[in-house]
């Protein structure tokens, strides 16, 4: 397991947003975290990334993570693309990408990777001197994902990457996510669009008010009538 959380609990003052959750992600696996608004998905992703204090245990490659250790977690290989994309809108597209190699020791290799990323996603190359805030929502999500990939994550946490994206843009992005698995990356994919997400994921956890209510192989969950009714809006 590259990631295993046990009895994870997160509180915001009096509110307990996550109530004892167990989550595993294996090497090279795409794991989906599904649930309605307010279920606690972002809270889990943010706790793993090191932005929040938490109780319970999160182990990454067997090593216990400390709460609130975000900048060091990036160097360990845990990279979160936050909800809302986290683009630095005042910087250019290229400067955003350059922030992706901030933690890398192999700077010249990093710069080569940055160039390659601009070829892989030509829009990021064409718009490299534009302010990132001028990109469309889909382009910004692509930029955020590319920037995250440049920091060479081993575990990529994506928080609702499809938010506000048209169906084609979502499909394209999920295609990119599926490709990353070929590069040996593990992905925890937080989403609300359950049906589409389960198609790219290997396994999934279904979350309701801070608890896991179902989990298992993505294929199984799609076929499960109970899950289908509760989370996927019935058949079809």
């Amino acid at each position: 397991m590259i990631l295993s959380a046990r009895g994870l609990q997160v509180r915001y003052g009096a509110i307990t947003a996550v109530r004892g959750v167990d989550i595993d992600v294996a090497e090279g696996e795409i794991v989906a975290l599904l649930g309605a608004n307010g279920a606690g998905k972002s809270t889990i992703a943010r706790a793993i990334a090191g932005l929040l204090p938490f109780q319970g245990e999160i182990a990454y490659k067997g090593e216990k993570l400390r709460p609130n250790d975000a900048e060091r977690n990036v160097r360990r290989g845990i990279v979160l693309v936050p909800e809302g994309r986290g683009i630095l809108g005042r910087m250019t597209v290229e400067e955003n990408l350059a922030m992706g190699i901030y933690t890398r020791a192999d700077k010249s290799q990093g710069i080569a990777d940055l160039k390659r990323m601009q070829e892989r996603f030509p829009i990021l190359g064409q718009r490299r001197h534009n302010a990132a805030s001028l990109l469309s929502g889909g382009e910004q999500q692509l930029l955020a994902t590319a920037r995250a990939l440049l920091s060479k994550p081993r575990l990529l946490l994506l928080d609702e990457p499809s938010l506000g994206l048209a169906p084609q843009a979502t499909a394209y992005l999920f295609g990119v996510i599926a490709e990353t698995r070929a590069e040996g990356l593990s992905v925890l994919l937080v989403e609300q669009k359950a049906r589409q997400t389960l198609k790219v994921a290997d396994r999934a956890y279904l979350l309701e008010t801070g608890r896991v209510v179902a989990s298992g192989a993505a294929q199984k969950l799609i076929e499960d009538p109970v899950v289908s009714d509760a989370f996927l809006g019935g058949r079809g």
Binding site: L51, V74, G86
Partner: peptide, 11 residues
Amino acid sequence: ENREVSRLLGV
């Protein structure tokens, strides 16, 4: 610009 995002980039 964004302290939290900068942390997520390892700053």
